[in-house]
Computed example of a mutant assay.
Amino acid sequence: MNIIVCVKHVPDTAEAEVTIDESGKDIKKDRLPFDINEWDNYALEEALLIKEKYGGKVTAITVGPKEAEETLRKCLAKGADEAVRLYDETFKGSDGYVTAKILHSFIKNLQYDLILTGVQAADDEYAQVGVTLAEMLGIQHVSMVKKVEILEGAVRVNRELEGGLEETVEVKLPAVLTIQTGINEPRYVSIAGIRRASKKEIKVVGLDQLGLRSDEVGEQASPTIINRLFMPEVEKKVEILAGSPGEVSTQLLNILKEKGVLSL
């Protein structure tokens, strides 16, 4: 089974102090660590598990600059067979729709049974690329996937719904699945895997090779444009009441009266 996994190289902001850059449309990334997008990491692991059970090949593809090869090397170290980076300077500013268009221009010429993406990317949270890619390829898709079962010429999956519910869906192959976190336990990268990955070639494909024009990519071709990025204003504050239980009770009672909660 030939599986394509679309991955993204994203900044890790979990423990970082995020600040807005001079453009007002992005965050400052020069001092942030980067890694594979969390959702894509689960998608990669699911692809590797399927390959180990049924055989085949896993190809990791990303849209991004030279630095994104760090994530592709990680995919290779974990067990991906091939890695491809799609990039041109004109790709900058591409939204989810245009990113899907770039991926489609390359993937449409490949032989594949299954395409896996993460549900969303941690940096923009568009959750658009996987489903848009499926529409462009003219194949079925299932989003928010929590379980995958390979059948003869089809795939049966559980997808997450609201309220903790799941539904079971069966679709014919080829198909696109957007993978939710928690579907598996992503493996760690081994030293041997890192050594193997360092020797593998990462194919780089540019604008002309993809058959795209510069006016078809980037911000100018994107339906979604970021006008301004800002930190939300603090509208509420926390007041800590101090003193003995009796004093705190009195203070709380007075506050509730001032706010109109109590009319005593």
Rank of each mutant, 00 (worst) to 15 (best):
C6S: 07
A16C: 12
I20A: 07
E22Q: 14
S23T: 15
S23W: 10
D26I: 00
I27L: 08
D35N: 13
N37D: 02
E38C: 01
W39F: 15
L48W: 05
L49M: 13
K53Q: 15
K57T: 15
T59A: 08
P65V: 00
K66D: 13
E69Q: 11
L76G: 02
A80M: 02
G93V: 08
Y97I: 08
K101Q: 10
K101R: 14
I102A: 00
I102K: 00
N109V: 03
D113R: 05
I115A: 01
L116R: 07
V119K: 14
V129G: 00
G130H: 02
T132Q: 13
E135P: 01
G138Y: 07
I139C: 03
I150Y: 06
L151S: 08
V155T: 07
R156A: 05
R156M: 11
N158K: 15
N158V: 07
R159L: 02
G164V: 05
A175Q: 00
L177P: 03
Q180E: 14
I183A: 01
E185T: 13
V189E: 03
I191E: 13
S198G: 09
I202K: 07
I202P: 03
V205N: 04
V205W: 09
G206A: 08
R213F: 11
R213A: 13
R213T: 08
S214W: 08
S214C: 05
G218E: 06
S222N: 09
V234D: 11
A242G: 03
G243F: 08
E247I: 07
T250Q: 14
Q251Y: 10
K257R: 15
E258Q: 13
